[in-house]
Every structure is written in C-alpha cells, then in structure tokens.
Simulated assay, not measured.
Amino acid sequence: MLQRNSPRKVTSRRQISYRPTSWKVHQFEVWSGELLCRAAVLRADRSLFVWLGSGSGEPELGDMCMGVPAPGWLRAGAGRGGLGTALVGAEGAEGAATALARRLAAALQRPVYICSSCTFDRFTIPLVERGLILEIKSRPECF
C-alpha cells in the first residue's frame, strides 16, 4: 500500500521591515521670457528620470532617451564623458534629447533617462539645458 505524505504548510518566520522609499520627486519650470517646458525629476538610488513637457495641455509621455556615463577606459581614450541612445520614439541617436541625456549622465555620473513630450530645436535646447543646470546647482539634493 502506498503511503502519501500530505504537504506540510511552511510559513516564513522572517521579519518584514518596511522602510521609506528612496525615490525623490522634484518639479520645476524652465522659463526664458516665456514658459519653455515643465520638468519632473524622479531620483532613485542609482539613476535619474527627467520628464520634460510642454506648459500647455495634458502631460504625456513622448520620446525616451537614455544616457550613461562612459566607462573609464573609453573616457580616457576618446575623451567622451557619456554614451546615449534613443529608446522609444522616432528621434535619431544624435537628437537633442539624446545629447542632453548623454551630457547629464556624464556630469552626474549615473544613468539618466530623458522623456520628452515636446520638441526642441537648436535654439530652445540650450535654454532648457541651462535651466536644468541651474536647478541642479540650486537643488543638488534632488538630483
């Protein structure tokens, strides 16, 4: 006669401890005579997510780019501070948001994701970048 063993109920005796989230959210606007864009920054332990959207209408997700700091061996040889690529959207590898993500990643030494729902041209992207740099310098704990 076969003897079947009934499954034993095993419960965990581990203590679960909750801790506050390490995510920090910071919102601001970039102005240059008129509203250029709104920005929301989500800071995690080892990365940064920056959303840039237009001042009018509903917030939406658009093109997404990623920038990472270049490894030491690449930085020394080519003189580049970071690498960037487009993840989602029609923007090419050397678009304005990709270049911004690459430069921010090199400056902050962490991966940076840029999600942009507005289009920037060669005149507005330096103003937006300058606004981001000013905000980073004035509120470094948020970045």
Rank of each mutant, 00 (worst) to 15 (best):
P59H: 05
D45R: 14
E129G: 10
N5G: 09
P111A: 12
R13N: 13
V50E: 02
E141R: 13
A70G: 10
F49W: 07
A76V: 07
M66T: 03
K137A: 14
G84I: 09
L52Y: 03
V25N: 08
I133W: 05
I125C: 04
W23A: 09
R102M: 06
W51Y: 15
W23G: 06
L74G: 02
W31V: 08
W51L: 08
C115K: 01
M64R: 11
L83S: 05
A99P: 01
P59A: 12
R13F: 11
Q15T: 13
R130F: 09
S117E: 02
P140Y: 10
F28V: 06
V128R: 00
A97I: 03
D45L: 15
C118N: 00
C142F: 13
S12V: 06
R103C: 09
P20C: 09
L87K: 04
R43T: 05
E141C: 08
I114P: 01
T11V: 14
S12G: 07
E135L: 08
L134R: 14
R14W: 07
E94A: 13
K24S: 13
S56H: 10
E58N: 10
S138T: 15
A105G: 03
C118I: 08
A96I: 00
P59I: 05
R19M: 08
S6G: 12
R75I: 03
K137L: 15
A39C: 15
A97L: 04
L83N: 06
F123R: 02
S32Q: 14
D45V: 14
F120Q: 01
S117R: 00
R19P: 00
R122I: 06
A97M: 13
L87Y: 05
A101V: 01
R19I: 09
G77M: 08
A97Y: 01
D63M: 05
T124W: 02
G89N: 08
E29G: 05
R103V: 09
R4M: 11
W31E: 07
